[in-house]
């Protein structure tokens, strides 16, 4: 079991260090556009991806870097893609960018359209079943995506066509800047059950909990050719994207607080009671968001705390991955021809 824990920890650390690096490069202006980080999802992704075999497909969303790294796609090619390098060495020749990563070799496709990973996985699974392979398809998307029509239609399609799909719902509690509990009717596992799909809800911050469950779930999908719904609770410490107004409540209030206050105090409009309630809602969502940042919600921290006897081994993994990521950065910048601060 120690070997397994260390392997899972290594997958998580590789993804974490890689994404921490992309955050720095983004801040340095070397990565353009929006940047959606998967920090906080590593345990859930590692628990699933470590149970995949060659030929299994993944359809994912705008926050897909962890699964690309953990599946073994060349990290330098991902980094160059995220930096928009227009060359052969980039995963998608600089045309896709971090929200639109594609690897034909690994059967991995992504989309920045919310919910699009569900129909994506259904089609991959249809092809796997038609070709009479034992392969499955995994869809990764957030809980917010389960309010999209095409997502719900895909649950029904996978159920009625009896397709080997694992629907992974990464529930970080936030649909962009909206608190998901305010926008989700009922319970998502029960929603999947309503389509005739079995499902379970797990603590997605505990890699062993996910890994152990998936060791039973995935072979069942392969054998029975039936979809399964996995709901995992995760966090997104880095916000919806790196410019999420909820990330820096102080800055956001500084930037927009004056106009909110002015608007609040301007006569004509709703009555005072309604206004106080509305402003209260804005403030409480800003503050509530910060709860995610605590280290007890960090999947790496949780693993280390559970296995204190492996502290030294964990440290070694950290050091090795750190060196590995440093080399990737050096190689990448050489190709990119740029300099980082």
């Amino acid at each position: 079991m120690d070997a397994e824990v260390l392997h899972l920890y290594e997958l998580m650390v590789r993804s974490r260090f890689f994404e921490e690096l992309t955050k720095v490069l983004w801040e340095d202006g070397l990565i353009p556009g929006e940047l959606h980080l998967g920090i906080g999802t590593e345990a859930a992704i590692a628990g699933v991806v470590s149970n995949l075999i060659d030929g299994d497909a993944i359809a994912s969303d705008h926050r897909s870097t962890p699964e690309f790294i953990m599946r073994g796609v060349n990290p330098s090619s991902i980094l160059l893609e995220m930096m928009g390098h227009p060359g052969e060495e980039s995963l998608c020749a600089g045309l896709g960018g971090h929200m639109h990563l594609f690897s034909k070799e690994y059967l991995m496709a992504t989309s920045g359209i919310v919910g699009a990973s569900l129909p994506g996985a259904v089609g991959f699974a249809l092809a796997a079943k038609y070709k009479k392979t034992d392969n499955i398809a995994v869809s990764f998307s957030g809980e917010g995506s389960y309010n999209q029509g095409h997502a719900l239609e895909s649950l029904n399609l996978a159920s009625t066509l009896q397709l080997p799909v694992l629907f992974v719902c990464k529930d970080n509690g936030w649909s962009i800047t909206s608190k998901s509990s305010d926008f989700t009717g009922g319970n998502l596992v029960q929603r999947a059950n309503g389509f005739g799909i079995d499902g379970i809800s797990l603590n997605g911050l505990d890699v062993e909990e996910v890994y152990n469950a998936i060791q039973v779930i995935i072979p069942r999908i392969r054998k029975n050719k039936k979809p399964y719904f996995l709901h995992v609770l995760v966090t997104h410490r880095e916000g919806h994207f790196t410019t999420d107004p909820l990330l820096n409540p102080k800055d956001t209030l500084k930037k927009y607080g004056a106009s909110i206050t002015k608007s609040f105090l301007t006569p004509k409009g709703a009555n005072l009671g309604k206004r106080i309630k509305s402003v209260g809602t804005i403030l409480s969502s800003l503050m509530e968001f910060r709860k995610q940042v605590k280290s007890k919600n960090d999947p790496l921290y949780i693993t280390r705390r559970k296995h204190q006897e492996l502290a030294q081994e964990f440290d070694e993994v950290d050091q090795n991955i750190h060196r590995e990521i440093k080399k990737i950065l050096e190689r990448t910048l050489e190709i990119y021809g740029g300099k980082s601060k």
């Binding site: 962009i176 608007s263 809602t281």
Partner: peptide
Amino acid sequence: EDVHTNRSALVARFSDRIFPTPISE
């Protein structure tokens, strides 16, 4: 989508005339 965030000044003044929705275009 996210009109409570993107139109926070309008929310502060017009309250229940602003309806945030899920991501369900």
